[in-house]
Amino acid sequence: MDAILLQVLNGLDKGAAYALIALGLTLIFGTLGVVNFAHGALFMLGAFCAVTINRALTLEKVALSETQTTAWGTPLEIRTPYAQEWFGDFGLTIIDYSVPLSILIAIPFMLLVGIAMERGLVRFFYKRPHAEQILVTFGLAIVLQEIVKAIYGANPIQQDAPSIVQGAADIGALFGDPGALVYPWWRIVYLIFSGVVIAAVFAFLQFTTFGMVVRAGMADRETVGLLGINIDRRFTIVFGIAAVVAGLAGVMYTPILPPDYHIGMDFLVLSFVVVVVGGMGSLPGAVAAGFLLGVLQSFASMTAVRDILSKVGIVGLDQIIIYLVAIVVLLVRPRGLMGRKGVME
């Protein structure tokens, strides 16, 4: 029972990351009709916002030791972060909270990146075939990756969660069975954070005038335009919001997975599967499929499941379960779980 609960939690957690990226992808596809292969790169840029903020906060004052030398004979460098030098313990607390603090910088930065990307490149491809949109956005993703690699190198860069939420929570203790169910604190934070972001995006689209116009535009862009509304401008902002969602997903994911320049690509393929399973252009579909596939992937790795499968001669199902489910869903429901008629058809 504990093992099942653990896998459910883990599946939801994995699903949260898929759902956040797929949500942004679907927003862009639903509004602008663009298949954005650079979306993974936006996730990666978000992650590197956290890295950059951390680097800025941990900028160090370098003093050369008069007594100690390095193994190669130069004076040993004694490094102290400026934040600590200037603000003492408060400086160390700021460094400790660098990942959540990065959100404050990541929101405006990603909004600008999104808008610049849409205005500077993507808009020229609206009327071009999907294959060309894929090529140009994929090319952009590679350029962004290489820029990040040139600056930060190819190795993963560890980012720590604030010390208060490091380690694992003993959830079992709440139910009188200590040690039976433990789960990392930061992953719980990530799950809650994802829920909040997803709810905020839906609320924004559902309960604001801006959101109403966007939804109307998604349903019938031409008519909304005929009403004298500048729908293009609003869609540009939606692109920016999608970039912010991907970026925030990236910022908060850094303590779970030390980011490197390739982190976005690792997520991109899975996120497209999520979007297709959920139904192209369906926001609730993307979220539901994200969580569904996350949970399924997690269950396929359970020891009990693996044992049963290996008895019937199936091994390594956990590595392909997502794609297998995608095939089954598309065979049974060609438009995906919640796909609308006429989208991508």
Binding site: L6, N10, D13, K14, A17, L257, A300, T303
Partner: peptide
């Protein structure tokens, strides 16, 4: 799989093994 990224699904079964 090589380059799995998130290994949590492989680590959780270790906890109760």
């Amino acid at each position: 799989p090589l380059g799995a990224g998130d290994f949590s699904q492989y680590i959780t079964p270790v906890l109760n093994s």
